[in-house]
Amino acid sequence: MEIRRQGDVLEIAELDPFLAELLRQVPDSTNPESDESAAARLFSLPAVESETELCSEWKLYVEPELRRLFQTATETVAADLRQLNGTAKPFANCTLRIPRKHAEAWLSALNQARLVIAAKYGFTEAELSDHYRSPIGSRRDLGLFQVNFYGFLQEFILQELE
């Protein structure tokens, strides 16, 4: 995989089918609905629970806005990812081009996905910092790989935004 900036486009080239599939999973991975802890992490409380009025108003007025914000970012990313569909050779490497103006949406969607996956599997800080982990042997290992891969992409996008 090669990752570089070409003018106003961030280009991820030579994407092998496995990494391309992980990228395709970004939008679905941002959905916390099936997992309570993931939903709680994406929509965390703005104050201690004893601030009941503040917390209930937040749920009523702010949370829907946040949902819309996250949804918009995810839709932008899903649209960019359509480039990966319908390649002539199903197992060939491919290239993803992300317009620079979509960089913030990507940062958000990748972050949503990382937080949801990490909450779902309950990864510890030590696990998340272990970059020399043994090969993927379970769905949980794959989740950790996803979190780290998406994190790597975030770092690249952040560097390009500076």
Partner: peptide, 18 residues
């Protein structure tokens, strides 16, 4: 402070007002 916390949550940071 509430506005800042809202912005921080928009970036998915864990933030509270106290």
């Amino acid at each position: 402070a509430e506005l800042y916390v809202q912005q921080l949550h928009g970036y998915l940071l864990l933030a509270t007002i106290e």
